[in-house]
Nucleic acid binder design. Structure first.
Lengths: 254, 254
DNA sequence: ATTGACATTAACGTTGCGTAAAGGTGTATA
DNA sequence: TATACACCTTTACGCAACGTTAATGTCAAT
């Protein structure tokens, strides 16, 4: 049995364009071309097309399909396994997106009144601007623009609740540090709790928390006098103490 | 503070091409163009860009983003909700793909040895070909090419186990029909069990089982003499009996 | 004056076809 | 036999969101 494009197309439930395209990219060449230049397909091609469509339904890309169907020695299962991995990745990505979208919707339709929100937006912007003015350049040099921007974006899209929460956490860190400092022992339970609070606080600004980065920031509190001044304001030595506590907390203590 | 493309680009962690593209499609126009034709962005544009990138990270399309950021009255939350629906659909699609891929992998790496498998592939192909030769045209006319192709594809990608199972089921239908026919009552338990077996058997070939289609096929067994002959071979009247049983089973009995 | 970093526009490439447009082929019918 | 009509062909733009040359202009410093 021989078919021209349209016959084969409706046999397979696809368009003639698709068949021509498959010919063009070498996925499925017709058995022969007749004297009028028409594409003529035979049984072999029908079978092959069936394979192609099967893989296509699984979402496999045409390039991979081509490898599978043109290369008899090619292992279809392995290709499928690779494909599976890609699908899994995509789904994870989707899940992350969905979580963020849900979160954003929840925050946006939240209980922030318009005027209060506007004022609040001003605060946030000020917070970002201040930070940029004070530390912008160094921080950007140290961590790269992307990280800083992500952080700023995060702040900008924060809700009142989140803002309150982060402020509260910030105060808690200070209070906890104050109490822990009095023990004089960075390994003490209180000091470790402080380190943990500090981690939570940081996590508001950072996408992916890592121990290394945490330890790095703690070290910066000692190296950069502006930070040192902030933490040492009421208790000289508090910055060093916090760094030690965090280094122990993160297991970065040499 | 004013920025040219590169400054703004690295501030935002994107490419200059992206900025020019956003200008081109009207998502983010520069504040002004200087005498040399350079794009100059100000604080307003930085803020806007931050918004754009925020929505972009949520996977929102540029068209929607454009609506959101250029139209102050536009409701961002609603756009997000729409977007959320799209994401959910995508994930469902992905899940279906994944399930099918997994299934295929499991079947392919199954216990069919190469030579046995090849022989088996031959059988399957023969089965498809025979069917096409016998009933192809009519069936295709009645149910459309897509349905038939899906069915054929399904058979072609069946494992030995599935093939055995379907053969076994087919026999079971015949045996059960034989026994039920002796009761003479299509409403009898045995007859209804036969109808159920028949449903299971059909479901191997069909994607979406519906009562209507089931009833239709049963009717065809009576209308088409080739089928009638097959079922009536040992017991004349069996085809009609099966149809009646199925019509009762599916609730299609007028 | 030259170099080097930065800017510009223009235009193709990516994936898998849909959708014309412009024109040959095959056959049934007036 | 002319013509209509269904079917075939190639060519090529369009989609999303930019990446990637290529060719060329601008600015500040050497």
């Amino acid at each position: 049995m021989e078919y021209k494009v349209q016959k084969l197309a409706q046999l397979a439930g696809i368009s003639t364009r698709t068949l021509r395209y498959y010919d063009e990219v070498g996925i499925l060449k017709p058995a022969r071309i007749n004297s009028s230049g028409y594409r003529i397909y035979g049984q072999v091609e029908v079978d092959r097309l069936q394979q192609v469509l099967f893989y296509r339904e699984l979402g496999v890309g045409l390039e991979s399909i081509k490898e599978i169907v043109t290369n008899p020695s090619f292992n279809g299962v392995n290709a499928l396994r690779e494909h599976r991995e890609k699908l899994l990745e995509k789904r994870e990505q989707l899940d992350i997106l969905l979580a963020n979208v849900d979160k954003t919707i929840a925050l946006r339709e939240g209980r922030i009144t318009m005027t209060a929100k506007e004022k609040f937006e001003g605060f946030k912007q000020k917070m970002i601007d201040d930070n940029e003015k004070k530390y912008g350049k160094e921080i950007r040099e140290k961590y790269g623009d992307k990280v800083v921007n992500k952080s700023n974006n995060k702040v900008q899209n924060m809700s009142q609740e989140e803002y309150d929460e982060i402020t509260r956490l910030g105060n808690e860190v200070i209070e906890s540090l104050h109490a822990a400092f009095l023990t004089g022992d960075p390994t003490s339970e209180l000091a470790q709790k402080t380190a943990d609070l500090h981690r939570q606080w940081l996590s508001f600004y950072w996408e992916g928390y890592t121990k290394e980065a945490h330890a790095g920031v703690a070290q910066m509190y000692v190296d950069d006098e502006r930070f040192t001044a902030y933490y040492d304001k009421e208790q000289p030595g508090a910055a060093v103490f916090l760094r030690d506590a965090v280094h122990i907390y993160t297991g970065m203590k040499k």
